[in-house]
Design a protein around this nucleic acid. Structure first.
Length: 291
DNA sequence: AACCGTCTCAACCGCCCTGTC
DNA sequence: GGACAGGGCGGTTGAGACGGT
């Protein structure tokens, strides 16, 4: 058994599209509209896979596409959104009118991914308190219980929904890491690694009195997906907000969740709204993200 | 001019989600 | 609820462009 191919590949043309093919596809879609990609090639008289037609249309032939180099403003948006959303290119391009996710993905991979390592917060920029708190929390936990990749075992059913923890001989649970710089300040690289580049595993924290359960908001490979809003929401509401305010303990419903913050941030980026009704600390976080 | 390594990006692959029957 | 088709998406590939020697 195998997966049904999206189309019969025998006899189909592959590789670069010719201008004649582009014209046929464009004319057909203008006359009949988008959709029914599987039947489109046959109806249009193209020797192409339906998926190939769709991709060609979406990425190059649509009339509302923006041509030309990525501007510095667009680049800044890509960097910021990629930091918050991860490789969710389809979400990222929603904020870049006229661009395609393939284009942005390629631009990231060829231009920005190598730059990413140098994308550090300027030393004179003050991190919002909430970020520092979060990173410190992660650092404390990181020392007592070193985080590691965890792969959720979905292939073997078991009654306890157990998380498998592959441990290799090279790994040592007792290793302690110093995440402070020479001035005793929390290492900025560590903070950004925690929060920015998918090293959120460092923020793993115990969730109950016995420190047995952990908040696990990871992908299938045990890697947190950059800004995991749901997870950060858990951390902030359970660990920071509730510890810092009695009111929060009494009425969690009044807390604005990080998901709300994220929504708010997205709205701000869409210029549909401005930050409002946010806790001052959370406001700092939003401001930082938007800066 | 020829060769070679690197970069770019259009295109492809295959997984996954959703809707329909 | 299961099977299937259609479509969307992110990761990867590879041909061509480019730059250095």
């Amino acid at each position: 058994m195998g997966r049904t191919p999206c189309c019969e590949k025998v006899g189909l043309k592959r590789g670069r599209w010719t201008s004649e093919e582009d014209e046929i596809l464009t004319n057909y879609i203008q006359a009949n509209g988008e959709g029914s990609w599987r039947s489109l090639p046959k109806n249009a008289g193209l020797l192409r896979c339906g998926k190939s037609c769709r991709l060609r249309w979406i990425n190059y032939l649509k009339t509302d596409l923006k041509r030309g180099n990525i501007t510095s403003e667009e680049e800044a948006i890509i960097i910021k959104l990629r930091a918050t959303l991860g490789n969710r290119w389809s979400l990222i391009v929603e904020h870049l009118p006229g661009r395609t996710n393939n284009e942005i993905k390629n631009y990231w991979n060829s231009h920005l991914s190598r730059k990413a390592d140098s994308l550090r917060i300027p030393s004179d920029e003050k991190l919002p308190q909430v970020v520092v708190e979060l990173a410190k929390k992660g650092a404390q936990q990181h020392i007592s219980k070193r985080g590691r990749r965890r792969k959720i075992n979905t292939s073997v059913s078991n009654s306890t929904n157990e998380i498998t923890v592959p441990v290799t001989s090279e790994e040592n649970n007792d290793i302690e890491f110093d995440h402070t710089d020479e001035y005793g300040e929390l290492d900025q690289d560590f903070i950004t690694n925690c929060l920015w580049e998918g090293e959120g595993e460092n923020l793993e924290i115990a969730n109950d009195d016995n420190n047995n359960n952990e908040i696990l908001s990871e992908d299938n490979y045990g890697k947190l997906d950059c800004w995991d809003w749901e997870y950060l929401d858990e951390i902030l509401n359970n660990e920071i907000w509730t510890n810092s305010t009695k009111e929060a303990e009494q009425d969690n419903n009044n807390n604005m969740s990080l998901c709300d913050i994220n929504d708010n941030m997205q709205n701000c980026m869409n210029k549909e709204a401005t930050p409002q009704n946010i806790d001052p600390m959370q406001s700092d976080l939003v401001a930082w993200l938007l800066s």
